[in-house]
Amino acid sequence: MISSITKSKIPIDFSYVLKTSQLEEILGRENIITDVTLEYWKPQIIGSIFEVHYWLPNENNPFNRLYIRAGAILKKDVYNAREGLQKEVLPEFVKWIKNIEQLEKSSPLNTERLFSGYYRNNKVFIVKD
């Protein structure tokens, strides 16, 4: 479930790669139960199209949550980037979060984590921990 969405204005020659409806559909279809905050942004790192921070409960929030930043890239690259996001990045994200959600709360593997998808030179790249 997406609990919050923030969308910043971007220059006219840029476009966001992720569509909110696309993320909502995946979260629902895959029964991902972790709360999501979604922020659309123009990243400082060129080509960052999908960045996910997995956060554990703390004194301000009593539950696990995902902070997702959806990046913008030049419009000329958005078609290829969306294809890579759909075919490679989002399926890997689903596997990644499903593995985390299956962990016991007390597991030493249940830690804060980062998942990132990048688009460079007409290819997508994934970095995760």
Rank of each mutant, 00 (worst) to 15 (best):
M1L: 12
M1F: 11
I2H: 04
S4N: 14
T6S: 14
K7G: 06
K7Y: 10
S8R: 11
K9P: 00
I10L: 03
P11D: 05
S15L: 05
S15K: 04
S15F: 02
V17G: 02
V17M: 03
T20K: 08
Q22V: 12
E25N: 13
E25C: 06
I26S: 11
L27P: 11
N31Y: 15
I32H: 01
I32T: 02
I32G: 01
I33P: 05
T34M: 14
V36K: 15
V36E: 10
L38N: 12
E39G: 08
E39H: 12
Y40K: 03
W41Q: 03
W41M: 00
K42Y: 05
I46H: 02
G47F: 14
S48N: 06
S48Y: 00
F50V: 01
F50E: 00
V52F: 07
V52E: 01
H53I: 02
W55P: 00
L56G: 01
P57M: 07
N58R: 06
E59Q: 12
N60Q: 14
P62N: 10
N64K: 09
R65G: 10
L66R: 09
L66H: 06
L66Q: 05
A70S: 13
A72N: 02
I73V: 12
I73G: 09
L74F: 13
L74K: 12
K75E: 11
D77W: 15
D77T: 13
V78Q: 14
V78K: 14
Y79G: 08
Y79V: 12
N80W: 04
L85Y: 07
Q86S: 15
K87Q: 14
E88F: 08
V89A: 10
L90V: 00
F93T: 00
W96I: 00
K98M: 02
N99F: 02
E101Q: 04
E101F: 05
Q102S: 12
E104R: 06
K105D: 07
S106Q: 10
S106V: 10
S107Y: 04
E112N: 09
E112Q: 12
E112K: 05
R113F: 09
L114E: 12
L114I: 10
F115R: 00
F115Q: 00
Y119V: 11
R120S: 07
N121H: 08
N121P: 06
N122S: 15
K123C: 05
V124E: 03
V124L: 06
F125W: 10
I126V: 11
D129W: 05
D129P: 00
